[in-house]
Computed example of a mutant assay.
Amino acid sequence: MQINTLEIVIVIVLALALVIWLVIRNRKDEDAFKKDELEDSEFLEPQDPDKE
């Protein structure tokens, strides 16, 4: 059984591309979650304008 180095390189590049894509997507989702969490906190802890 002979392993072609070109095939190995292609698989490694595709795996790296998948990992990079997942990391970027996760960061976007995390930022959206934090933004949504901040907006939800306004509903959970209403601020009284007279106290300021």
Rank of each mutant, 00 (worst) to 15 (best):
M1Q: 12
M1G: 15
M1H: 13
M1P: 05
Q2D: 13
Q2K: 14
Q2C: 08
Q2I: 10
Q2G: 12
I3L: 12
I3A: 11
I3D: 06
I3S: 06
T5V: 14
T5P: 07
T5D: 13
T5Y: 08
L6D: 14
L6S: 14
L6T: 15
E7M: 11
E7S: 13
I8D: 05
I8N: 09
I8E: 05
I8A: 06
V9C: 06
V9Y: 06
V9D: 08
V9R: 13
I10F: 07
I10H: 10
I10Y: 12
I10D: 14
I10V: 15
I10R: 15
I10A: 13
I10N: 13
V11S: 11
V11N: 11
V11D: 14
V13G: 03
V13Q: 04
V13E: 02
L14K: 06
L14S: 09
L14C: 11
A15I: 01
A15M: 06
L16H: 05
L16R: 05
L16Q: 08
A17F: 03
L18W: 00
L18R: 00
L18C: 09
L18D: 04
V19K: 01
V19R: 00
V19A: 08
I20S: 03
W21R: 06
W21P: 00
L22P: 03
L22Q: 03
V23P: 01
V23Q: 05
V23D: 04
V23H: 01
I24Y: 03
I24G: 02
I24V: 06
I24M: 04
I24T: 06
R25M: 05
R25G: 10
R25D: 07
R25W: 04
N26T: 12
R27H: 13
R27W: 11
R27P: 01
R27D: 04
R27S: 11
K28S: 09
K28F: 04
D29V: 11
D29F: 10
E30M: 10
E30I: 03
E30K: 13
E30V: 04
E30G: 09
E30Q: 14
E30L: 15
D31I: 13
D31P: 00
D31W: 12
D31A: 15
A32E: 15
A32C: 08
A32P: 00
F33Y: 11
F33Q: 14
F33A: 15
K34N: 14
K34Y: 06
K34S: 09
K34I: 14
K35W: 02
K35N: 12
K35A: 09
D36Y: 02
D36I: 01
E37K: 14
E37Q: 10
E37M: 11
E37Y: 07
L38K: 09
L38I: 05
L38D: 08
D40V: 05
D40C: 09
D40K: 07
S41Q: 04
S41C: 08
E42F: 15
F43A: 10
F43W: 10
F43H: 07
L44E: 08
L44Q: 07
L44A: 13
E45V: 13
E45L: 15
E45R: 09
P46E: 02
P46G: 00
P46V: 01
P46T: 00
P46S: 00
P46I: 02
Q47M: 11
Q47I: 13
Q47V: 14
D48C: 02
D48G: 01
D48W: 02
P49A: 00
P49I: 03
P49Q: 00
P49K: 00
P49M: 01
D50Q: 08
D50L: 10
K51V: 14
E52T: 09
E52W: 04
